[in-house]
Write a protein that binds this DNA or RNA. Structure first.
Lengths: 223, 223
DNA sequence: TAACAACAATAGTATTACTATTTAAGTTCA
DNA sequence: TGAACTTAAATAGTAATACTATTGTTGTTA
């Protein structure tokens, strides 16, 4: 089985839909590679243009600025994660298993698909961990939020919150626990690799640590 | 009672200690005000120089770049928070009360002191919430970390972790719970004000919400 | 008071973020 | 077919930003 999944990204994020042209898709694919390599602060449209043999101005016809391009990538990620969760939960009845599956998905690399035009999931994962908070930790968040560009994040959060409520209807903070779960899965993974003293990771459980910690945390919270 | 607290900040963060000159102290004080006003991305040494009637080059004699200046401010915050916690826990015997006090401190504005040369605590709090992750979510974190510039954060994290262990010696993730507590206290406060759908806040409990959520989360985790 | 640090200002440069305008490449339809 | 009309992408900029090399100025101490 092989298939391509396409998500509709809010058209206020881009000026010209990158999904509709070869160049547009190249921009996204290479942006992911480049942001992974040099980090979002060093990433510029000039450098990206050189990578794909075009000019800065051309990229500016697709995105207003680099912040919007990152927002596009994260919208794609949040939509993809929502899809993956729905897909994987299909035949699971037990709410505990559902939450365990979600925690596993949030704390491990995205499954690599075989489509050639597909984005590099390893890099995408890395970007989500290290750069995602930079799309909302900005001064003009209120203004940006009006365009509903965080809708996929809110939907992902709500979807998990609903499963939390199914598991324990009396729990009072389903959405906060959901956003905490998402955010914590990212930065604990970041800390493990870069500031391990802020965690209790040990060399043996590096890969499973974040999932173990979050499973413990979430199910105790929902007892 | 009125007193000034001074913290020794790792001297690898600055080129010239801003504590040792009037201009240096002006740089820090006005940097906090300016970052609060316009956000870290828009903040430049040029703009700061205009604020305090000096030149860019002068500020570059104190700090290598704006990232280091933010790091200096956060080192000060982490040290101050550690001090505040130690101070407030003085006569508390009960470990549960200790943790409740810590959660209260992390989720509320810093107490305003009366010293005139002191930093604006309201602004500092805002900066910690919205900008702190930008000091470690950078590509060269490994390199930067070698200078021990995150020591105050690690010490704060460890201090809380030790109280967690005192409260429940069998709990397996004291440091991760501690870093989660610190980080979650920041971004839940951010979400409440900017993306409330990611939380369960209601107009009535806005001020106490983060503390309520974290108290519930932490004490259930430590049962 | 000469020597020499420490400090801060001047005057730059290279890069970055972004735009206005022009040129080229399709499409549509009489 | 080819004129009219879109759409796409390149050229060639500008203003702001991040950072540096050099010079001048002040203060200290021997």
């Amino acid at each position: 089985m092989d298939f391509q999944v396409k998500f509709t990204v809010n058209d206020k994020i881009f000026l010209k839909d990158p999904e509709n042209s070869v160049l547009g898709r190249q921009i996204i694919k290479n942006a992911i590679d480049l942001i992974y390599r040099i980090g979002f602060e060093s990433f510029t449209f000039k450098k990206l243009a050189i990578e794909i043999n075009t000019t800065e101005a051309t990229i500016y016809r697709y995105f207003e600025n680099k912040h919007r391009l990152l927002l596009y990538i994260l919208n794609w990620y949040w939509s993809y994660m929502s899809f993956l969760i729905m897909f994987k939960l299909q035949n699971i009845e037990d709410n505990k298993s559902k939450l365990e599956t979600i925690i596993h998905l949030l704390t491990h690399e995205l499954p690599e698909s075989s489509g050639t035009l597909d984005y590099n999931k390893k890099y995408l994962n890395h970007i989500v961990i290290a750069e995602s908070s930079k799309v909302y930790l900005v001064k003009d968040i209120q203004e940006i939020n009006k365009d509903e560009v965080f809708k996929p994040y809110k939907e992902l959060c709500l979807m998990i919150a609903q499963i939390i409520t199914s598991y324990n209807p009396s729990y009072k903070y389903p959405r906060s626990l959901s956003s905490t779960l998402i955010e914590t899965s990212h930065y604990e993974q970041f800390f493990i690799h870069n500031l391990p003293r802020l965690t209790d990771v040990s060399p043996e459980n590096r890969n499973e640590f974040t999932a173990m910690f979050l499973n413990d945390l979430v199910f105790k919270a929902l007892l």
